[in-house]
Design a binder for these strands. Structure first.
Lengths: 225, 225
DNA sequence: TGTATATATGAGTTAAACTCATTATGATGA
DNA sequence: TCATCATAATGAGTTTAACTCATATATACA
């Protein structure tokens, strides 16, 4: 009973794995169904028993990728309970993954432009949905615990977070600078911090002379960057 | 002399206009070369005298769009000399245009995924280049005039700006809420302000502001070491 | 073991991007 | 105005690759 179902699922996975390899190697257009069939050790016609068409296959590849990524990200987040640290961990993980698997991200674009290909069928671009929810959960929990302000709306914060990181990833890949992941994450967190952390006013009593001296030093340092 | 060249350019424009109509109506895949030819009142073969293939046509459509957008944005910016106001004007214009012409943005995705189609030929995705430069110019001029700090790197700022706005546009289109353009722009500017405006705190009594600024600077230093 | 049902196959069909031999257009000069 | 040449346009024909379907094979069940 379950062996049959298991076997079919096994085949589906084999197709996805084969398709992923072929798509990543050649890109969507130059990838041929015959190549995918070969890589999966199946006849071309058999592919169509599992997926309606080439678009459905690429969609399955992309969806599968985001599912894996979501699982891994969840693990990475569980290492800390501090909301802000979790956010930083997510940003770091997300950017790292995007840079590493940029070709998959580009494959995802196929799904955007080919929407409305077959009215109905190809329903909305909702891969990433559960992944994006990770961010929402962090923010909401941070707000509940009173650590985060809510002066910025959640949808906006989400767009800022993921939009910035996607563009940053493209820049890093384009200029082949994966070592800049950290500085990008740091800058993003610096931007978010004042809008998330409930600022505890620094205690007074500090000597003005010290402040003045510090400020001169900082100004000097700032000029270096 | 010039009439001949002018006529050819005229034809190119007719093809782009026709292609734009057909692509926006049907999407890239369902748009047929024959339809474009019909819409341009030309034979199908003639299209190939002007553009190498379907991809080249869609690229021309997208490039043309961004050229127009760039011109218009420049006009919108010339209304004010204040750097921060210019940034806000650009954000507002950009988001408005993206929401209005979202289908063209999606068409642009075709260029991303189909890169490497024909090694060499389809050189980098550099439409938007001059458009993105508008942002750079505002930032750089603001920094030169001493109104903007430079604690965040230009590439990062650019990715933050355009990345956030693209994601925000997608959200607005998806939820059909074009009236939220203003709130999105406002939130983006609120996020950017503290990192751009040089708010030199008067060291007379304004301890909190000084401390805040010093803290930011120190955190930044900590990140670097 | 025989029959029915489910799954796999790949030669054949079809659609659409692209080519190219032929035809039309228009410029130039006598 | 016409003859010659060069340039541009045409669309029937070719090619490629996604997709189909009649046939073959495997599997479950009595």
């Amino acid at each position: 009973m379950s062996t049959k179902r298991a076997k079919l699922e096994q085949r589906e996975k084999r197709i996805i794995a084969a398709a992923r390899t072929v798509f990543l190697k050649h890109g969507f257009n130059k990838a041929k169904m015959s190549q995918i069939a070969d890589a999966a050790a199946l006849a071309e016609g058999t592919l169509y028993l599992y997926y309606k068409n080439k678009n459905a296959i690429v969609k399955a590849v992309v969806v599968d990728h985001w599912r894996q990524i979501t699982d891994e990200a969840q693990d990475a987040l569980s290492k800390t309970k501090d909301s802000f640290a979790q956010l930083q961990a997510l940003a770091d993980y997300h950017l790292t993954m995007m840079v590493k698997h940029w070709r998959v991200i580009e494959l995802g674009y196929v799904l955007y432009y080919s929407r409305s290909d077959d009215a109905g069928e190809n329903a909305g671009v909702d891969f990433k949905r559960t992944y994006a929810a990770l961010f929402d959960r962090i923010i909401e929990r941070g707000q509940d615990k009173g650590h985060f302000t809510n002066e910025l709306s959640l949808p906006f914060l989400r767009d800022l977070f993921y939009g910035t990181l996607e563009y940053a990833a493209r820049t890093l890949v384009l200029h082949n600078k994966p070592e800049d992941i950290d500085t990008n994450v740091a800058q993003l967190m610096a931007v978010l911090r004042p809008h998330l952390s409930e600022n505890v006013p620094t205690d007074t009593g500090d000597d003005k002379a010290v402040l003045k001296r510090l400020e001169r030093a900082v100004r000097k340092l700032e000029r270096l960057h």
